[in-house]
Simulated scan of single mutants.
Amino acid sequence: MLGALYPRLDPSRIRSVRFSRRSWRRGLDPDEVYGFLDRMADEVELLCRDVRVARDDADRVKNALRNWQTRNARAVDNRWRGDRR
């Protein structure tokens, strides 16, 4: 599992990555690399926010369903007993 090998990526971790420069051979353009990492961090940040919103929405729906089931279970139970409330 990837999570066991590496810490989870988050925007701050991506932005903090630094690449070493090697003077003895040509490397990547640091501005290009850091520009890409900033874009990647922005995307991950949006995805994290979307996941957080989706989880909050799912929790709200689950709670609403539980409440609805509780109310309707009581109503069904009362009908079986002959109560009319």
Rank of each mutant, 00 (worst) to 15 (best):
R15C: 00
R71S: 03
N63I: 03
R26H: 10
R66P: 00
R81V: 05
R8K: 11
R85Y: 04
R60M: 05
D38Q: 12
L9P: 01
R55P: 00
G27Y: 02
E32T: 07
R8Y: 04
V44Y: 02
K62E: 12
Q69I: 11
A73C: 11
D50V: 09
T70M: 10
S12N: 11
N72S: 08
R22G: 07
Y34M: 04
P11K: 05
W24I: 03
R79E: 13
S20A: 15
V61I: 13
L2N: 13
N78E: 14
V44F: 02
L46M: 13
N67Y: 03
D31N: 10
S16L: 04
W80F: 14
M1S: 13
R79Y: 10
A64Q: 15
N63H: 04
L2C: 09
G82S: 11
S20G: 15
A41P: 01
E32A: 07
I14V: 14
R71N: 05
L28M: 09
M40W: 10
W68K: 12
W80A: 14
A58S: 11
V44S: 01
R55L: 09
A54P: 00
R85A: 08
P30C: 02
L46R: 15
G3K: 11
A64D: 09
D57P: 00
D83F: 06
R74N: 08
R71A: 08
A75G: 06
D83C: 04
R25D: 13
G82H: 02
R85Q: 08
S23R: 06
D59Q: 14
P11R: 02
R22A: 13
E43P: 04
S20P: 12
S20H: 11
L9M: 06
S20Q: 10
P11M: 02
D10Q: 01
V44D: 01
W80N: 14
R55V: 07
N63D: 08
A58E: 05
N72L: 10
G35Y: 08
I14G: 02
